[in-house]
């Protein structure tokens, strides 16, 4: 079935709730069996891994005239998801994905990602982002970076900092403006 494509399109098009729950790429690997609680969930990312998570997230959503991913607490939220939300298999996949980031960084720049200068980090992020886009367009399994970026985007824009300082959310729907009310998806159960 085209469930992955469906969810991708709906998350783009109309379903906030679906985007929250399913559209985030991490849990959507169709190759996995049913998820379930089991020992190991309390595992936490190491300090080094958290540093890498921070560098990746800040590279994707940097501080500009508004706060960036680190200011918004993106790394700690991803750390929480790792410890309490991922399945054990997802934890392993995530750790392996971080390892691969550094492997590729060493291969390309002879240094871990965190130790690379900002310009080199940006070049690698751009490359991985293109690879993620190619995978999406080919309806192939999402890359680690593609999944990580989805999580980082969700973690950033749902943060207090981003909701208030970046998005500057206004209460209501604009119902009293000439444009009329926006409809926040999903507007109805489908």
């Amino acid at each position: 079935m085209q469930r992955r494509e469906f969810l991708r399109r709906v998350s783009m098009a109309c379903a906030l709730a679906v985007a929250y729950r399913d559209g985030q790429a991490w849990a959507m690997d169709p190759g996995r069996g049913p998820i379930g609680a089991s020992p190991g969930q309390s595992a936490a990312l190491t300090e080094a891994q958290m540093s890498l998570v921070s560098a990746l997230a800040e590279g994707i959503l940097p501080a500009t005239d508004t706060p960036g991913a680190i200011d918004a607490g993106v790394p700690s939220f991803i750390g929480l998801l790792f410890s309490e939300w991922f399945t054990p298999q997802e934890q392993l996949d995530f750790q392996r994905g971080l390892e691969q980031i550094d492997e590729q960084s060493r291969s390309l720049q002879r240094s871990t990602f965190v130790a690379c200068p900002a310009q080199q980090q940006f070049a690698m992020l751009e490359q991985w982002d293109r690879e993620a886009a190619v995978a999406r367009q080919a309806h192939a399994a999402p890359t680690f970076f593609g999944r990580f970026k989805s999580l980082a985007v969700l973690a950033y824009y749902t943060s207090e900092v981003a909701q208030n300082e970046e998005l500057k959310l206004q209460f209501g729907a604009g119902q009293d403006t000439p444009e009329g009310p926006v409809v926040m998806p999903p507007p109805f159960p489908i």
Partner: peptide, 12 residues
């Protein structure tokens, strides 16, 4: 172009 709203109309 519209601002980011936190709400929405509750029907289609």
């Amino acid at each position: 172009a519209v601002p980011n709203y936190s709400g929405g109309r509750p029907g289609p």
